[in-house]
Design a protein around this nucleic acid. Structure first.
Length: 423
RNA sequence: GUGGAUGUAGCUCAGUAGGUUAGAGCAUCGGAUUGUGGUUCCGAGGGUCGUGGGUUCAAAUCCCAUCAUCCACCCCA
């Protein structure tokens, strides 16, 4: 058995951590300022939570990609394949529907789907998710889209494309689907094999067929937006007006199709060129009715999520610079055996207020200063026989090369003063 | 589920008319320097050549199988 991470999973190594922190802190900053509060749901839930939310037509597609297992108590549990159902479960379980609406929640963490890996697609990956519950107003849809856009902007991304659409209310979607089945059914023989298969399983998918002949046929059809009822149309118009007013760029794309049944009205995606075939960084939409179908009180809601790995990929493509994690303030070098434990003890004491690293074996000054330099330390502190005799450390500023002796008693004040100077 | 590409040192990669002890750069460790860093110079350690089988006097190299990784299709919460 080779020692190797499970297919579709990976380690986030120390060198990569600054990028992750940068992204998460950008998200936290933007969302917190907007009054969105963090909620951390468990990584797994009763399978029902995800199965019920997926809906009837989605479960063929979706359930086979869920990591489901039975625990020792014969409970069927599932590693979350998305955040929304778990957040809604928590929302209901804790009576958050009594809070003033909208209740705005966000979360972050790993997500699990048993898909075949490729660029931007893994079996364990990470999402930042945001949910706005309790209000059906288009104002909330617009705020949701805006915050998604702002979070990604705060990550340093340029050239984002927001695609905005509406799937209407359930009866609109049903009407459009049967329209598609009728019209495309008549011309099924002209369609490619793939589109015929899509027509059978999910007619809306025919709209983004890549085959040229298919696209000609699609061009003659009415669009999903033509089927919106008056209220849904007005809602969609209001969302657009808010976004325009708030100077959030977007394009209308009525082929934004959400795979899950629970979406109503607003649907949106945000894309970035240059991260491969999986170009969607994230997306979301309105899901009025979902809380109720999970067994809670009727509650309108809208939410989104984005894939952290894809955003990091996009950041890399855009050349986003992230501050390197700083080295220690001080690096201590023991120059004889007795000094090894002395510097370890001193480091331990100084760490109550400073970042202090040290070498773990006897080093000559050349090697010791090289170690200190490589650690990125600002100062080095050398300790050997000479220093011990005089009760001092030899301190060297690694940037200026300036060096003096500092008595053990003055160490902290010396460092404090030095740091002030440097700043 | 389908297709293509790729697996050689910790990392990035050379290395095919099959032929001695499989190389480089980076990284690590040591020395130049047993009390003064970044640059430089010298040296060392580190390899089941993904795995298994086959062909051959001889396989990293050719053949078959298998596993893994990457990319794309499909799908996409």
């Amino acid at each position: 058995m080779k020692l190797q991470a499970v297919k579709g999973t990976f380690d986030i190594l120390p060198d990569a951590q600054p990028y992750w922190h940068h992204l998460y802190s950008a998200a936290e900053r933007v969302l917190t300022r907007a009054g969105v509060r963090e909620l951390t749901p468990p990584v797994f839930e009763h399978s029902d939570v995800f199965v019920k939310s997926a809906g009837a037509s989605s479960d063929l597609v979706v359930q086979k990609e869920m990591y489901t297992f039975t625990d020792a108590g014969e409970r069927s549990l599932t590693l979350r394949p998305e955040f929304t159902p778990g957040v809604l479960r928590a929302f209901v379980e804790h009576g958050m529907y009594t809070l003033p609406a909208p209740v705005k929640l966000w979360c972050k963490g790993p997500i699990f789907r048993a898909e075949k890996p490729q660029r931007g697609r893994f079996r364990q990956f990470h999402q930042v998710d945001c949910e706005f519950l309790g209000l059906a107003s288009p104002l909330v849809d617009a705020e949701a889209v805006t915050l998604l856009y702002r979070v990604l902007g705060a990550c340093g991304l340029k050239n984002l494309t927001v695609r905005l659409g509406s799937v209407g209310d359930p009866e609109d979607a049903r009407a459009y689907n049967s329209y598609l089945r009728d019209e495309l059914g008549k011309r099924a023989t002209e369609l490619s094999e793939m589109s015929r298969e899509r027509l059978r399983l999910n007619p809306m998918r025919v709209l983004d067929a890549k085959d040229e002949g298919d696209q000609k046929i699609v061009g003659t059809l009415k669009r999903p937006l033509d089927f919106l009822n008056d209220e849904a149309r007005a809602h969609f118009g209001a969302v657009q007006r808010f976004l325009t007013d708030w100077e959030v760029p977007f394009e209308i794309d009525d082929s934004v199709v959400r795979g899950l049944d629970y979406y109503r009205r607003t649907a949106f995606e945000i894309h970035h060129a240059g991260i491969g075939a999986q170009s969607a960084l994230g997306g979301g939409g309105r899901y009025d009715g979902l809380v109720e179908s999970l067994g809670g009180p009727a509650t309108p809601g809208v939410g989104w999520a984005f894939g952290v790995e894809r955003v990091l990929d996009a950041m890399e493509q855009d050349g986003v610079e992230v501050p390197r994690s700083p080295g220690p303030t001080l690096f201590l070098v023991p120059m004889d055996d007795e000094a090894i434990s002395e510097v370890a003890k001193l480091a331990s004491e100084l760490r109550s207020s400073l970042s202090v690293h040290h070498a773990y074996s006897r080093r000559n000054p050349g090697k010791g200063l090289r170690d200190a330099d490589r650690s990125g330390a600002r100062f080095a502190g050398l300790r050997g026989e000479r220093e011990r005799e005089r009760g001092v450390y030899t301190f060297k500023n690694l940037r200026s090369g300036e060096q003096h002796e500092v008595s053990e008693a003055d160490l902290k004040t010396f460092l404090g003063a030095r740091l002030k100077d440097v700043r």
